[in-house]
Amino acid sequence: MLTDCDLVIFDCDGVLVDTEPITTRLVAECVTEMGWPIDQAYAAEHFKGRPLGELCERVGERIGRPCPELAEIFRERMYAEMESTRIGTIKGAVELLDALGALPSPPRVCVASNGPRRKMAISLSSAGLLGRFGGMDSPVIFSAYDIERWKPDPGLFLHAAASMGAEPSRCVVIEDSTSGIEAAASASMRVIGLANLTPASALRERGADLVVGCLTELLPMLRR
């Protein structure tokens, strides 16, 4: 799959950088303070990879009042913690990027995330990956906030493919959330699911063509 494509689109959180433990914990804390007690496991299952606006709507429905302040509270805490924490890479991410680049005819690579650019800049920089994509001003980093269309809407992936000059059928997406899998499938792109916090069965149900438990499992197919 990865040797027969023109563009590999990486999700950011949970695929390249190990930020999901931070964000799901903070979601659980903030939502609980709003009046809906949830734990980190619930936050990961129901809100990982979903737009922040959707989170506010869901919480508002549950507690019986609008809570637009939730978004700002969450962002402030997230940025404060991420800026003071050394963020690691997802196991196998660096090796996979290296292996893709070493192919005789390497595909282009880009990042497409539901997260805002500031979050991507902090996490990719802390993990030492920002330079691999040319910095935040690079034309290969895409945020849903740029076009105001969030996964599971396929718009972000289609925008990335068009910007990179690739046909959707020639793209492979690597995602770890059900919303990302849905978006890629709806965009008629091949999609690899990374089952770290999300069960493999859920990724398959949403349309993943291949599911792996670790990115290192993809390396052998690049060495054939």
Rank of each mutant, 00 (worst) to 15 (best):
residue 46 H to P: 01
residue 93 A to M: 08
residue 49 G to P: 04
residue 80 A to R: 15
residue 70 L to Q: 01
residue 63 I to V: 10
residue 34 M to C: 15
residue 92 G to H: 05
residue 57 E to V: 11
residue 64 G to Q: 01
residue 65 R to P: 00
residue 74 F to M: 14
residue 92 G to C: 10
residue 41 A to Y: 05
residue 44 A to Q: 05
residue 52 L to C: 07
residue 94 V to S: 14
residue 76 E to I: 09
residue 110 C to K: 04
residue 43 A to D: 05
residue 108 R to Q: 15
residue 73 I to D: 04
residue 80 A to K: 09
residue 49 G to C: 04
residue 55 L to M: 15
residue 29 E to Q: 08
residue 73 I to C: 10
residue 55 L to Q: 10
residue 67 C to F: 04
residue 52 L to D: 10
residue 52 L to N: 11
residue 106 P to H: 04
residue 72 E to K: 07
residue 51 P to D: 01
residue 34 M to G: 04
residue 69 E to F: 02
residue 91 K to Y: 13
residue 90 I to D: 05
residue 78 M to T: 09
residue 47 F to I: 07
residue 103 L to K: 04
residue 78 M to Q: 13
residue 106 P to V: 12
residue 96 L to D: 09
residue 42 Y to S: 12
residue 93 A to H: 04
residue 30 C to D: 09
residue 50 R to Y: 07
residue 95 E to L: 09
residue 48 K to R: 12
residue 106 P to F: 05
residue 99 A to N: 02
residue 107 P to A: 07
residue 31 V to D: 02
residue 46 H to E: 14
residue 43 A to F: 03
residue 104 P to I: 14
residue 29 E to R: 09
residue 58 R to H: 09
residue 41 A to P: 01
residue 105 S to A: 15
residue 81 E to D: 12
residue 45 E to N: 05
residue 43 A to M: 06
residue 41 A to I: 14
residue 69 E to V: 05
